[in-house]
């Protein structure tokens, strides 16, 4: 029981790191980026190549995955995404689905279609027990890393200059522009960091989620669920939603395996019917 809770939390934390970038881009530019999972996949495969083929240590691979994916994100943002911000949601959906398709086929071409695993150090393998609760070492690592990241993100958002600019931009981009904030620059940086975090999540999550070329398609739905359930007005919303979805998914698959992913889809639809703006959205004023 507690083990399931533990696994669920690890899973939820992972989802949060993967999805928080998407949440901010959606809140900031009202931009629907279905290709977010492609960046996560990129991070996963970059780490795979570095660790499995080049023999780099796992812990060196993670930060490189973050930086490399952030750079890729920034590149795509500047060259392609900028053209689509002002378009309709339909255009954004089509455009990013196109990117997903391309990334899926391209990775398939380069890396093959089979599922792959990143070699993790033996220290991180296996489980141990504390007070009768089975604790997977790797999952514990995920919780620690993601927990630290969450705290760091929260600190950056709440107490740095960039954080306050970002919050102002999310609140009302027009007003923020009026205050002399360069919303586009804020957005580019956020997009890059968000992509980087997704890449890091992809690298970390390869062990648990599995990594193959269809990753962006498979997990896109999960990311979107986190964002829609959590709302986009803060990062605490998506964080709580990630934990909720993570725990519900793990518990659902354990207790009612027959219903599979049914549980979280149902949760999502119920939440959206009751609170169309998301579970943690601020009082519906608009």
């Amino acid at each position: 029981m507690l083990t399931i809770l533990f696994d669920g939390i690890a899973y939820g934390m992972l989802l949060f790191v993967l999805a928080c970038g998407l949440s901010v881009t959606l809140g900031l530019m009202n931009f629907v980026n279905l290709a977010h999972g492609s960046f996560a996949m990129a991070g996963g495969y970059i780490t795979l190549v570095l660790v499995n083929r080049a023999g780099l240590p796992f812990f060196a691979g993670l930060p490189i995955a973050f930086v490399a994916t952030a750079l890729i994100g920034a590149l795509f943002e500047r060259t392609l995404y900028v053209h689509v911000y002002s378009r309709s949601h339909l255009d954004q959906v089509l455009f990013t689905i196109g990117l997903v398709f391309m990334s899926v086929a391209a990775v398939d071409y380069v890396m093959g279609s089979q599922q792959v695993f990143i070699q993790i150090p033996s220290v991180l393998q296996g489980r141990f027990e504390i007070f009768g609760v089975g604790v997977g070492r790797y999952r514990l690592l995920i919780i620690v890393i993601c927990g630290l990241l969450t705290v760091a993100l929260q600190l950056i958002l709440s107490s740095t200059r960039f954080g306050s600019r970002l919050r102002a931009s999310v609140d009302d981009p027009r007003v923020a522009r009026g205050l002399g904030i360069n919303v586009n620059a804020v957005f580019s940086l956020t997009f890059a960091v968000g992509s980087g975090l997704a890449g890091l999540g992809g690298a970390l999550g390869a062990e648990i989620l599995g990594l193959d070329p269809t990753f962006p398609l498979k997990y896109m739905v999960y990311f979107l669920i986190v964002v829609t359930v959590g709302g986009t007005s803060s990062i605490t919303g998506p964080f709580a939603a990630s934990l909720l979805i993570g725990i519900a998914d793990v518990a659902g698959k354990y207790y009612v395996p027959k219903f599979g992913a049914f549980v979280i889809y149902t949760i999502m639809i119920i939440v959206l019917i009751l609170r169309p703006q998301g579970l943690f959205a601020r009082a519906a004023g608009k």
């Binding site: 089509l94 196109g98 899926v104 086929a105 391209a106």
Partner: peptide, 17 residues
């Protein structure tokens, strides 16, 4: 035969751009 999805994706991206 294997990678037709890539071209479909490319068409989508180009149409929007």
């Amino acid at each position: 035969p294997q990678y037709w999805q890539f071209w479909i994706g490319l068409v989508l991206v180009l149409i929007v751009l």
